[in-house]
């Protein structure tokens, strides 16, 4: 299956990755060959097969609803690009 360059730009937008138009022909070839390989799956008869999402059939474990984590906000925010008063700073979103 061939992806158009427009489609690739649409996916890149969804993935929040800026793509230079100059990269598109190369990327189009590579993605085309990856999806060519993936499309061999259409030959497999999977009627009635239950999808397998995980290696072990585990139920989501529940725990008691109690506070287990101490407040380590300042410690965790040390690596943040921009913080102020415990908040992460980003460009203005709402005018």
């Amino acid at each position: 299956m061939a992806l158009s360059q427009n489609e690739i730009q649409r996916i890149a937008h969804l993935a929040r990755i800026e793509l230079d138009d100059a990269m598109l022909p190369h990327l189009q070839r590579q993605l085309g060959s990856i999806f060519g390989m993936i499309d061999t799956l259409s030959k497999v008869d999977t009627d009635g097969v239950t999808p397998m999402a995980h290696a072990q059939p585990l139920a989501l474990p529940l725990r008691d609803d109690e506070v287990t984590e101490p407040d380590r906000r300042d410690h965790y925010q040390q690596g943040a690009p921009a913080v102020q008063d415990g908040l992460y700073l980003v460009p203005k979103v709402i005018e």
Binding site: L3, A15, L27, L31, I34, F35, V44, T46, V49, T50
Partner: peptide, 23 residues
């Protein structure tokens, strides 16, 4: 990331992601 975004995107999930989980 682009491949993953595509196979999870609207309209392709069953054909790719679900199919792969069955295989």
């Amino acid at each position: 990331v682009l491949v993953g975004t595509y196979v999870l995107s609207h309209g392709y999930y069953d054909a790719y992601y679900l199919k792969a989980q069955k295989v």
